[in-house]
Design a protein around this nucleic acid. Structure first.
Lengths: 227, 227
DNA sequence: TACTAGTATGCTGCATACAGGAATTAAAGA
DNA sequence: TCTTTAATTCCTGTATGCAGCATACTAGTA
């Protein structure tokens, strides 16, 4: 341990190096391509082609593909490389159940641990979402929606829970988007969110848990026909 | 579908090709090395060295390392390669809480979905564990213990839940092993297991959930001093 | 015409080679 | 003797080349 005796200049800036590696770059890029549908489910990934498109050689791309395979976005077929994971209704239901269990845990802890300003920030995010809803702006609404769920879990203070939740949510991102088709369904989802925020502000864990579970049950009902 | 008209010889053996890729082989090998402690937490992984040890070149090894990093067993440090993830008490507690939430979900579904023969098999596994306990055989006891938890979740019928649970459990494997140090603590853990099996046989979900949660709370108490 | 065997192409999987950077050690100055 | 700096060594990150396998296409046969 040869720690430097003197303080480093600008110690506050010394930390957040958080170097953006090429690996991270590639992983995120391909992940986005999957989520956004540029690489549709079931599509085979052509390493040489995609590598040329991204301006990199096959090796780092392959490493990124293996990484994403472990996250569950890709499937590795021996001798045929990576194909975009395509999941059926049963698997989707399973994932939503797990998500429900995780958000249940998060709900209790958030009610206990979140500060008032945390909750105020969550409310602000909700209000922003409502504005997008009023304007019928689906994409921004959707992004806010996701952010609220993510924030709700992050406020639990359990970092591992947040990471696990995020991992699952990213996989559902494409599918969940279709869950708000139709004005009626959309209105129902909004109402559920409104009730959830109110329950957090009241710091009522039992009520929040009930709402979260129902919200995800309903999400399943909203998307089940589509899948 | 071009099914051959005549029966193939030994059709039961025709199926299980299930090609074992070198990639899978490497991933599993390194994962075991981490779990078994050959690669201790905090250790830097030397690609050339480890590759030579396993008789492979760096390329497939690197792909496997990226894979494991995504699973959370390794951490990728830019410019310094992969180091074995070392987690502190807080992260361990977080993981056990998530595990608790997942097993809670599994407990309810298993009570509802498991067949009688499933439960009988679980009891048999439990009995086997008790024999190892009686003989003081820690390693086999431990393996049975893990198998029971895994089976309990698998019987829920939710494959995604099972996979998520297994992923977390594999990460805890090393640490949990120390949780049974001392005769008193060990006896307590055994008693909890006994009660859990009884609750499953009675198909009493509420009781099983309470026991599962308490079991993991106690696991935390058993290991918290050590970490 | 349909089906099988043979062939050719293209992609994956792995090994090797090279470039850039980090860590360590040695050397020089205070 | 300790600190600082420079140089060397090793390791990571990326590119490229080659072997093996899977798929697609073509020709031949029933």
């Amino acid at each position: 341990m040869t720690e430097p005796a003197h303080e480093m200049i600008a110690p506050s800036r010394a930390r957040p190096i958080a170097r953006r590696t090429m690996h991270d770059e590639i992983v995120e890029c391909v992940r986005d391509m999957i989520i956004e549908g540029q690489l549709p489910p079931g599509a085979r990934i052509h390493e040489g082609q995609l590598g040329k498109l991204l301006g990199i050689s096959r090796t780092p791309l392959r490493e990124a593909l293996k990484f994403l395979a472990s996250e569950g976005l890709l499937e590795l077929v021996p001798g045929r490389g990576a194909v975009v994971k395509k999941f059926g209704a049963a698997e989707l239901r399973d994932m939503l159940q797990v998500l429900s269990a995780l958000e249940t845990l998060a709900a209790r802890q958030t009610c206990a641990n979140a500060t008032d300003s945390d909750i105020a920030a969550l409310r602000a995010l909700h209000d922003e979402m409502m504005r997008h809803y009023a304007r019928g702006n689906r994409l921004d609404y959707y992004k806010c929606n996701q952010a609220i769920h993510t924030r709700l879990v992050a406020l639990s203070g359990n970092a591992f829970l947040a990471a696990t939740h995020e991992s699952i949510q990213s996989r559902l991102r494409r599918i969940r988007f279709v869950g708000h088709e139709g004005a009626t369904k959309w209105a129902a989802a909004v109402a559920e969110h409104e009730a959830m925020i109110a329950a957090i502000e009241a710091r009522d864990p039992d009520k929040l848990v009930a709402l979260v579970v129902r919200h995800l049950d309903n999400t399943w009902e909203r998307v089940r026909e589509i899948v």
